[in-house]
Design a protein around this nucleic acid. Structure first.
Lengths: 144, 144
DNA sequence: CAAATCACGTTGTACTATACAACTAGCTCT
DNA sequence: AGAGCTAGTTGTATAGTACAACGTGATTTG
């Protein structure tokens, strides 16, 4: 059991260290799109549009937070709202042309950065690491 | 190369997803000590005391940020300052009794949470995951 | 040695992300 | 038609952060 606990301890420490740095480093890398804006916009792109409520549920954010984030993205011209004709309350959110463009740029740069960081990993290790992360995060869904 | 890129993409997505959630979930789990306060206090404990400047350098934070974090921790009675007799400018920071106690509590609860989340992983997987995270983070040191 | 420079930390100011509560407006169901 | 639910906004407050300006003590240098 000792070894097991050591591994858990390390995982805890490393995940914590990573989380601590992520936001600031994302901000430095992509001043034009914060980590949160990025993930929201990416989700819209990925889902082909969705509601603010869906974003809030998916990212465990308050609806007011999402409302303001979306307002900011709209002001930047990266997101547009389409009122659902069947329910006037609902705004279906979509990336604009420009939003999709910026998203693609940031995504490309992020991918490049990750690729560089992982350049000296062999394929098996990459594959396993990816699988572990998915497994770890999947277990978190729904409760942090 | 296709498979390789898929893995990199997944790693990027999963790390991003994790980072997005970490702060909020830490705050929910440990309202008495934020993720940042926790890591600063843990570093002091681990290093047997250090300077504000060292914390700033290590965590890539502005010195003003560290100054305020430490002021808050001091106000809570979790940290004390000891002026370096050889250099009056320098304050060597240490956890107090109470700070060490709170730190130990939070650490124990964090450890427990991680242990539960990873309960159904076998030892080899845990070990490899821990190693991968260390390797990944080590490559980041010094530049986000 | 005196002046310039550097290092450490604090304070003023501003901004972002966030939550919670109160609210408006639209939908649903009895 | 009225009660209650849902979607989203706005007011208010807080935490974390950066940058710039500053004070003070240490170091270097002309």
């Amino acid at each position: 059991m000792a070894h097991r606990d050591d591994s858990v301890e390390t995982i805890q420490q490393e995940m914590t260290a990573f989380a601590r740095r992520a936001r600031a480093s994302a901000a430095r890398m992509h001043p034009e799109l914060s980590l949160v804006s990025y993930t929201l916009l990416a989700h819209l792109d990925d889902q082909q549009g969705c509601r603010a409520t869906d974003l809030a549920a998916h990212y465990l954010l308050d609806k007011s937070t999402v409302s303001r984030q979306i307002a900011a993205l709209e002001k930047l011209g990266f997101v547009e709202r389409r009122i659902d004709p069947d329910d006037q309350r609902v705004q279906v959110l979509h990336p604009t042309e420009q939003g999709a463009q910026v998203l693609a740029n940031v995504t490309a740069r992020r991918r490049l950065a990750f690729r560089e960081r992982l350049a000296d990993w062999n394929e098996d290790d990459l594959d396993r690491f990816a699988t572990y992360l998915q497994r770890y995060n999947a277990a978190q869904e729904g409760q942090g």
